[in-house]
Write a protein that binds this DNA or RNA. Sequence first.
DNA 1: CTGTTAGCGCTTTCAT
DNA 2: ATGAAAGCGCTAACAG
Lengths: 332, 332
Amino acid sequence: MATIYEVSALAGVSLSSVSRVLNNHEHVSEKTKLKVNAAVDKLGYRPSSIARSLASNRTDCVGILVSELHGPFYGDMLTGIESELRASGKHTIITAGHSDKKSERDGIEFLIDRNCDALILLVEALSDEYIIELKKGKIPFVLINRYIEEIKDDCFYLDNLLGGYLATKQLLEHGHKDIAYISGPLIKRDANDRFIGHKKALAEFNVEYNEALLYQGDFLTQSGRDGITHLIEKQLPFTAVACANDEMASGAMKGARDFDLSIPEECSFIGFDNVFFTEYLYPQLSTMHYPTKAMAKMSAQWILKNIYKKDIAEINNLFIPSLISRDSIQRI
Amino acid sequence: MATIYEVSALAGVSLSSVSRVLNNHEHVSEKTKLKVNAAVDKLGYRPSSIARSLASNRTDCVGILVSELHGPFYGDMLTGIESELRASGKHTIITAGHSDKKSERDGIEFLIDRNCDALILLVEALSDEYIIELKKGKIPFVLINRYIEEIKDDCFYLDNLLGGYLATKQLLEHGHKDIAYISGPLIKRDANDRFIGHKKALAEFNVEYNEALLYQGDFLTQSGRDGITHLIEKQLPFTAVACANDEMASGAMKGARDFDLSIPEECSFIGFDNVFFTEYLYPQLSTMHYPTKAMAKMSAQWILKNIYKKDIAEINNLFIPSLISRDSIQRI
DNA sequence: CTGTTAGCGCTTTCAT
DNA sequence: ATGAAAGCGCTAACAG
């Protein structure tokens, strides 16, 4: 592998001149540029990113931590971030936190050890305190899908309360009054906000909230199924169920069918997130659109703007969910 | 940030001794180990991975290239690889090739430039020749989901022909004779193999292959929908359709329903890959299981064994699909 | 506009 | 078993 020394020798200029043209620094004569580029081509020279990082203290890498590398939600996030960063010549090191405190901590340490210039974090298990403390360290980072008051400008988040509200409102407007709710883990902020939104809609329509109709799931399909099973077996009265995400909604729909409930005739459903497969469920699932890609892109832009000093028009932290109306809700 | 010099000074031993205990080299006295570790703890020292890489010419990073970062198939692959590698203290740099020749080439170059110790590649657009040529370079790599005769020991692949055969056989055994086939892009080896398997099953059951019943899709949901629409509008006779992957099957099922075909009563379906959402379609989709995780894990193990000299029991290159029988096939 | 000179923080022979 | 010293390949003042 040719080094910069050989380029320098062949081009007949100094090391620094080579470095300058390689990094597009100004104040380099056209002539030396030409000479250097010729030498580079001739030698098939490729700079060593490692050596460059050691000397410059930059890696052009941003570290990403998401809960899982699979799953429609995280997949879209990753795609959105990677493509935006890649377009600016920055690279991503991706790792998984598995919604587990230790894993998330390890993941972050790993990314810091890899000398990432900045991080994009989707952390669920780590406490607000830990994150606020991390902010005092020297590694810049943003949070996605999470709101922490103290560092809110570095957070990108959805108005989950509004989403929960709009979802249930949709059910109410179709005449439903007995509405079950399959929530995410309520200790999680997003899950709780969606739930609060649900209750807000109920209140607005003067429908009394019935605690028995709440089932707390974990955002995974199986828990949706468990939820509907629980509700049915308890013989609880409901004509519709709002689910805190699409995975659970699909599980719940499956569970309902196991009890021969026809959808949406006997039971309506609404999901949340609008992941790609909702359109391919039967009936197609009405849900709340989560602008995942836009949020992913924005978080990447924050990095580009603040760390790499690129010109970015405007940073916007709050994202708004919108209703996707399909076929899983029956008017009664 | 403390450096190794400070550790050396505080511990009262030489640089090299510190380096030795840090890297678990043998021939270090218990005493110096203790002294060094104490100093490390006291200083909160963390080695710089960059400096280490520069000096040692290793990065402990393996580069992964997949077509997309989203999608159930790639997601599972990534998860499988990352967890296996991570467990051995190796790291992954992940990038997307978008099934495009230039993107894939760029991605590989990027990973090489990042000084990855080895690569795991899922490439679709790049030619066999390009890959064989790459093999002559100095970067070690394996291929997943692809078979190239010349480097077959470094390939991990599914017996797609068998899968295609078994899928259609399942339909035939349920009495179907008029079987439509929605294929992937037939220039792709895996798509073509599945299709060949389909025809083989037909032949074995003495059912004549009818070219009109073939629709060539692109593995994406929409093309499944387009396929079924085409078949129906042409008024072609069929009682079942075999799809080359689950995405297209879900699209096809949706399309069939748009024409008020009941599934599976009026039309049976079988998919391929057994991605997670097949279970949540209605009816649940019968499909061929693709041991994605196992393949991902195996490819990571190849790297661990051959690059990092870990003890790995056995490497196995060929993976076998198996039938997952659910509710989308009607006996006639 | 160009060249000289120090390192960046660590690993790795080679002696001892 | 330990230490000294020579880089790994590049960037970034600084001087000219």
